[in-house]
Amino acid sequence: MTAAADDMTAGSTGRTRASIFARSSAYLQAAPLAIILGCFLLLPIVMIAVVSFWDYDFAQMYPDFITLNYAETLGSWVTWKTYLNTLRYAAIVWALTLFIGFWVAYYLAFHIRTTTMQMVLFLVCTVPFLTSNIIRMISWIPVLGRNGLVNSALVGAGIVPAPVEWLLYSDFAVVLAMVHLYTLFMVTPIFNTLMRIDRSLVEAARDAGATSWQILWNVIIPLAKPGMAIGTIFVVTLVMADFSTVQVMSGGQSASVALMMKNQMSLLQYPAAAANAVVLLVLVLLMVAGILRIVDIRKEL
């Protein structure tokens, strides 16, 4: 925001006219974004909040003001179990992606010496994330399946007598696929903050006699926290919103909140799905608000 402040004071001649023009042009420039997000983000969310109080039957919704949808959602034991299960996925995937993401980012930022090599290796990590999520999920089937690569290898080597059944269509498969899909969202922000750490701090710590473990623990990790926080926002919100990975990788045996919503939607129970959506949205926004108290995103960009 300092750039903006400089701009305001640096204007030379015709200061007032120019600044009025600049001011209105800022509004014009921001308008398309505001209009698109207003129409396709704010309005739909308002609509969901409204519809969550409506009545419905097998065919139609009826404008009303009932709290039955919330009562049914929050009063059901299944809902609570599903929320707990989703939070469990979020916690496990968060821990794993944070661990993997930090070490990968740390390796790229501190152990690769040339910028070109850094960029090449970073791209190698990035490319799979720009391809289809569903294809990347499916690609685990020939690896983890009953007759898949892992099982063939294990049976062939005589480690297990019969194929391991829990590799595919299980919670294990769901978590593995989510880590596979979402780790980059942790690597990128952490890599970004690590690259901005002043290297002389590390030198100073070393001159002062710190071991490399102490440097890592007392200098680098504290400075990497904003990147970890941003990565956490991405990973947690993606896992909380996930239904396709849970559906495909658990073979329909596990549930997540979004999957529950999707099933309600396919039964045309929109008000019930809407009530669920409001609860999920409040939960996710509270989590993000909590993380944003630790980090100022605008400073980190």
Partner: peptide, 11 residues
Amino acid sequence: LVVPSIIISLG
């Protein structure tokens, strides 16, 4: 960025 995509879809 953080609103679950299925909520936007539904909305």
